[in-house]
Simulated scan of single mutants.
Amino acid sequence: MSRYVKEMRVMIGHQPLLLAGSNVIILDERGNILLQQRLNGHWGLPGGLLELGESLEDTARSEVLEETGLTVENLLFLNVFSGREYFFTLPNQDQIHVITALYLCRTYRGEMVMNTEESKDLKFMPSEHLPVNTETEYRDYIKFYQDNQSLYDVQGK
């Protein structure tokens, strides 16, 4: 949890909080998507919440590095996701309304190293065979990419 969120929670308790963040669809050379298995056992995309003073692209880069050990290059902005379907009540009863920028990355460097404080596993998987316990939010992001893939294949080359 970001320092900002911790400070806000002290002031507002479990009340709804608007949170901006970024997620990244990272593709390997075969077009498989890097998925992160979170500590709760569910799968999703690498990414996280914006820190004060950070841009959404900075957030994407720093969160991927923190969670995977990879340095992402040539990020391509795909879309912003927001709305009622991105309002969540967390297990600790904190309420959040998430506004997420989604990026695509085909080029990265470094060795994949899992941050065990945030993840159980990291795997490249075919987008048509996502694990059953992939969270709906991330399925939405991946579906958006799949539905618009021809556009991004042209732009990303």
Rank of each mutant, 00 (worst) to 15 (best):
S2L: 11
R3M: 12
V5P: 00
K6G: 08
M11V: 10
I12R: 07
L17F: 01
S22F: 05
N23A: 01
N23E: 08
D28E: 03
D28G: 04
R30L: 11
N32R: 13
Q37S: 04
L39V: 10
W43I: 04
P46W: 07
P46S: 11
G47L: 03
G47C: 01
G47Q: 05
G48T: 08
L56M: 06
E57P: 09
D58V: 03
T59P: 02
R61E: 14
G69Y: 10
G69Q: 10
G69T: 08
L70H: 05
L70V: 07
L70M: 09
L75S: 09
N79H: 15
V80C: 08
V80D: 07
F81I: 03
G83S: 03
F87L: 08
F88Y: 15
Q95R: 15
I99G: 01
T100V: 10
L102N: 01
C105T: 04
C105L: 03
Y108L: 07
Y108V: 02
G110C: 04
E117T: 12
F124M: 02
S127L: 10
S127A: 13
H129K: 14
P131F: 02
T134G: 09
E135M: 08
T136G: 03
E137T: 09
E137Y: 01
E137I: 03
Y145R: 12
Y145K: 12
D147M: 10
Q149R: 15
L151G: 06
Y152P: 03
V154L: 12
V154Y: 11
G156H: 06
G156C: 12
K157H: 12
